[in-house]
Amino acid sequence: MNSDLSSGLELDEYSRYGRQMLVPEIGLEGQLSFKESKVIVIGAGGLGCPCIAYLAGAGIGQLAIVDPDVVETSNLHRQVLHSEEGLNKAESLRRFVSKLNPKIALDIYTCRLTTSNASIISKYDIVVDCTDNVAARYLINDICVLMNKPLVTASALRLEGQLTILNYKNGPCYRCLFPRPPAPELSTKCAESGVLGSVVGVLGTLQASQVLKLLLNNCPKNSNKDDAYQDSMILFSLFKFPQIKQVRIRPKQKDCQICSADPLIKTLDPSNYEFPVCAIPSPANI
């Protein structure tokens, strides 16, 4: 492979990424910030599929995918990059990414993220929560706060989705927004709730966009644009008008259990994440 050492990009990367390098906010500087970054995506399901595809397409240098589950027929309506039933989902996406963009270094974890293996997160710059359950969401948040990693989190159910950037620029964490988990008796299993695939797809592509924006924010030439950064949440709801909007959320909370100056939670104690594995509060199911 020819390498243009002076620029930091190999020659074939100019043809692969040239169209996005024409964007003034990207250019060579932005492309290098993608190439030099390490991003971990937890969950290779409905959110993870589109998110990983666009991160790989954009040229994130090192991409990690974490998922212990195997592909089932009932996933395919929304997890559109899988096709082989019984194959581990992280492995399935490894095959996809290596076909789309062989230039990406891939780390595949076919295990569940737990308090015991949380240290794998320390190797990466940005964490993307593409999981589907409330316990994982609190665990990933706490790991990100303790390791000081920005977190791009999204979720979707039925015809709705939500996205927010957490633990970034001294902004709030998940526990700032949701100090108390929903009570277990208000929860229902994932499999009891449905979701439209394209709605999850919108959220997953928005997640990839936020990751790339965080990397572009680091480029000196974009420092003026970053002034406009606000703690916010994107809300999508297919049958509402407006269907999609971005709302302003609270700042970091002084009494947050984990991200405040004197936090209650100082280490990863497994008992903090022992709610139902797939807890979705659904008033309709009570």
């Binding site: 409330v134 979707a156 989705g161 999850v200």
Partner: peptide
Amino acid sequence: ILFNSTLHGG
């Protein structure tokens, strides 16, 4: 005024 419940699916 919007009352919005958090979602956990993905």
